[in-house]
Design a binder for these strands. Structure first.
Length: 753
DNA sequence: TCATCGCAAGTTTTT
DNA sequence: CTTGCGATGA
């Protein structure tokens, strides 16, 4: 390995391998390079790879780091993982200490909510008046702060306890009991249980501490109390702890992250070496100046410099539009022109926004301009009904105590089974002290249970029993077996409807995912597959080349693009209203500012910021106010409100950006319904009155026109499926409808409308 | 027991 | 506007 290409401070961070090290790394300062080089250096120095642990927050970051590490070290097994995966692995091995069996299930937010609801029902709380989701949030916050059920009341009674909190205090222990009974954990438990384990069991803590002799933590400014404890526990006797981070990029305070963790690292670890990476190799001086000007408004902050290394580029621009339609359309036009002129490729562009809802109009505009794009975190694949159903099958095979999985299946899939039968079965399991699958198997003689229901339960248990051992035959085999034996897809196989085709395609995708998992994993297990399914995010692989990338500002952290556009710089949106005015005094605003800082510093060469005069929120037209941040940036806002978008009107969609609507907005009047077909309110309606347009592959929006060599011209009336299995239904001349797999059919888009 | 309809509520960021 | 839930009828 050669370090010639490293700067002095980078080299210092790489070579200082022993003892605590804090790397304060500004944006674009080559932090990832430092980490990967450092890992390589450790291995060069003779450290066994399995004694090195590198922890990140997201799968995306972990994958990237693992990949880059593997490039430097051929096939060396350094464990690069996320906090949650790390904890899951520890708990699979040592979870007995906190009452977990090795095959425990991880509950996602949905399962969590359902279980909280059940806990509330058990305690006879009104789950309508008190939202389980809200209670869940309270519990989650407590867990992040390491507050167990027994401490919850005590911890919060001093604060002005609202009713929800009081309910949460009661529900928390019951919820926790149910989780344990189901041999399950929620996301927060993964961390909390590990902390408990290490606290209760000093020998285990010490063992892990020694096992992971060298620990690296990325984005340390985002650690919450639980994560902080875990890291502390892993670096007491072997304090070779290297953390990297940037207080200015702390954007997860809302989720319990404590910026203090990084600020007090030096006090926590005496003899800490501090290395600052302040040179920026990413952005032009113009962009850095803007970023610096913005972040300087944060009061609670250690001043830090961003030293440019590149030559000046284009000016940063702020453009203002009459409406969000104008904003989106302009963006699409801008990208199209840049690519057409040969100056850029689609790949060079990224669009960031504060909330996912803002993506829709941009998507539509890109679609219309035939610009390929990829979105991080669209509709979650693993959240689809049919996918969750199948996963529930797998979960019950893996963990027959998994109540949430059982409840899901029993409620929606088992024939002749209703609420009463389910309750009887649960009682039966409870009385006999057997798991749910065993209860199904022995459902026959349960008193008062329906004959058909009992039969249904028994057949179901047989399907599960015959599903095979995934660790021997692979997850795919188990999955296929379950699909076959339960007849899961039968009704769709014989059905040509749009819906059925889509569901089948999704099932196909899940089988692909399982096959992929079996292939990539040395020791595939059902637990492992399920873990991946719930801890992995769809946006984790934004790897499609040749497309514009769209994502939230949060998702943008750690990435970089030649051209970045950030939309919606408006009060209430960025800064977001819900992020302000909490108990914290101005911290919310500072975090929002950091969020924009993160966004700005993703840009390598060009940065375009936009906002509008009026934007639709909840279907209503609302006047926008320039974001405070726009003023702080000290840039001139360019008036693009007149640049217009007659195109929408020309397409027969109504003149949203017509002169009238502008004047109404600029005079500050509430806009009134205008004559002349102004009643098209949403983007979805524009694309033919359906919401499906959001998930469409580019070029085949619902409502768009296509040509097929045999069928001739037609209009897209529906879509479905994912990636390779993506389908569209096209209506041709005589009302004849055909469904095609996009990637295989010789379809050609020929415009909208 | 199941399906449909209609009503209601609620809209940040994510592992 | 969307989504999710509950009540009602078959």
């Amino acid at each position: 390995m050669s370090n010639v290409e490293l700067t002095d401070s980078q080299r210092e961070a790489v070579e200082c391998t022993e003892g605590p090290l804090l790397v304060v790394a500004g944006p674009g300062s080559g932090k990832t390079r430092v980490i990967t080089h450092r890992i390589a250096r450790l291995v060069d120095n003779g450290v066994k790879p399995w004694r090195i642990l590198a922890i990140t927050f997201t799968n995306k970051a972990a994958n990237e780091m693992a990949e880059r590490t593997n490039q430097m070290l051929e096939s060396c097994h350094v464990w690069v993982t996320t906090f949650h995966k790390f904890c899951a692995r520890i708990l699979r091995q040592y979870g007995k200490g906190v009452g977990l069996e090795a095959n425990f299930t991880i509950y996602d937010v949905r399962d969590q909510r359902d279980l909280i609801k059940r806990a509330m029902e058990n305690l006879e709380f009104d789950s309508v008046a008190f939202k389980p989701a809200k209670i869940g949030h309270q519990i989650s916050r407590a867990k992040n702060e390491l507050i167990g059920p027994e401490n919850f009341s005590a911890r919060y009674e001093s604060s002005i306890g609202d009713a929800t909190q009081a309910v949460a205090a009661e529900v928390y222990p019951e919820y926790q009991r149910l989780l344990l009974e189901a041999n399950a954990v929620d996301f927060d438990d993964l961390l909390l249980h590990v902390v408990t384990l290490m606290a209760d069991n000093p020998e285990l803590r010490s063992k892990l501490d020694h096992q992971y002799e060298y620990v690296l933590v990325d984005e340390y400014q985002d650690t919450n109390t639980a994560q902080y404890k875990i890291i502390s526990g892993l670096s007491r006797e072997c304090p070779n702890l290297c953390v990297t981070g940037d207080p200015d990029q702390s954007i997860y305070g809302w989720r319990g992250a404590r910026i203090q963790n990084i600020l007090r690292f030096e006090q926590d670890h005496p003899r800490t070496r501090v290395v600052r990476l302040e040179e920026n190799f990413r952005s032009t001086p113009n962009i850095l100046a803007v970023a610096d000007r913005l972040i300087a408004h944060n009061v609670r902050r250690k001043a830090k410099t961003l030293i440019p290394t590149r030559s000046a580029g284009r000016d940063v621009e702020v453009r203002q539009f009459a409406s969000a339609f104008g904003e989106a359309d302009h963006l699409a036009g801008f990208i199209r022109d840049e690519v057409k002129s040969g100056r850029r490729e689609f790949n060079d562009f990224a669009v960031f926004y504060r909330v996912n809802a803002l993506s829709r109009l941009v998507e539509l505009a890109l679609l219309r301009a035939k610009i390929p794009y990829q979105m991080a975190a669209g509709v979650e694949f693993y959240q689809r009904k049919e996918i969750k159903d199948l996963l529930a099958f797998l979960r019950l095979v893996a963990n027959p105590k998994d109540y949430a999985a059982f409840a899901r299946i029993a409620n929606t899939l088992l024939k002749a089974v209703g609420k009463i039968s389910i309750q009887r079965l649960l009682d039966h399991a409870d009385r006999q002290q057997i798991d749910l699958v065993e209860a199904c198997r022995t459902a026959g003689p349960i008193p008062k249970i329906n004959k058909p229901a009992a039969k249904s339960f028994r057949e179901f248990s047989t399907c599960l029993a015959n599903a095979g051992d995934a660790s021997v035959n692979g997850v795919t085999a188990t999955l296929r077996s379950l699909i076959d034996s339960t007849g899961f897809t039968d009704e769709w196989e014989s059905d040509e409807s749009e819906d059925s085709i889509q569901r089948l395609a999704n099932v196909g995708e899940l089988i692909n995912a399982a096959a992929e998992y079996d292939r990539s994993e040395e020791q595939p297990t059902l637990d492992g597959f399920l873990e991946m399914a719930c801890l992995v995010n769809e946006g984790d692989n934004l790897d499609e080349t040749g497309s514009v990338k769209m994502m939230t500002l949060h998702a943008a952290k750690g990435l970089e693009f030649p051209v970045v556009a950030i939309i919606g710089l408006e009060e209430g949106l960025l800064p977001h209203e819900r992020a302000l005015g909490d108990f914290d005094n101005g911290n919310g605003l500072e975090e929002e500012r950091r969020l924009l800082f993160v966004g700005i510093t993703r840009a390598r060469e060009e940065l375009l910021l936009t906002n509008t005069l009026s934007r639709q929120v909840y279907g209503r037209n609302k006047r926008s106010i320039d974001s405070l941040f726009v003023r702080e940036l000290g840039l001139q806002v360019q008036d693009f409100t007149g640049s217009g978008v007659p195109t929408w009107a020309a397409l027969g969609f109504g003149g949203f950006d017509s002169p009238q609507s502008q004047s109404a907005n600029t005079t500050g009047r509430q806009s009134v319904a205008k004559p002349g077909g102004f009643n098209l309110t949403t983007a979805a309606q524009m694309a033919n009155g359906t919401t499906e347009s959001v998930t469409l592959p580019q070029g085949f929006a619902v409502g768009s026109r296509v040509r097929h060599p045999q069928y001739g011209r037609g209009v897209v009336v529906g879509c479905g499926g994912y990636s390779k299995n993506r389908t569209v239904t096209v209506e041709f001349n005589q009302g004849q409808k055909e469904t095609f797999v996009v990637s295989k059919a010789p379809l050609e888009p020929i415009g909208m409308g």
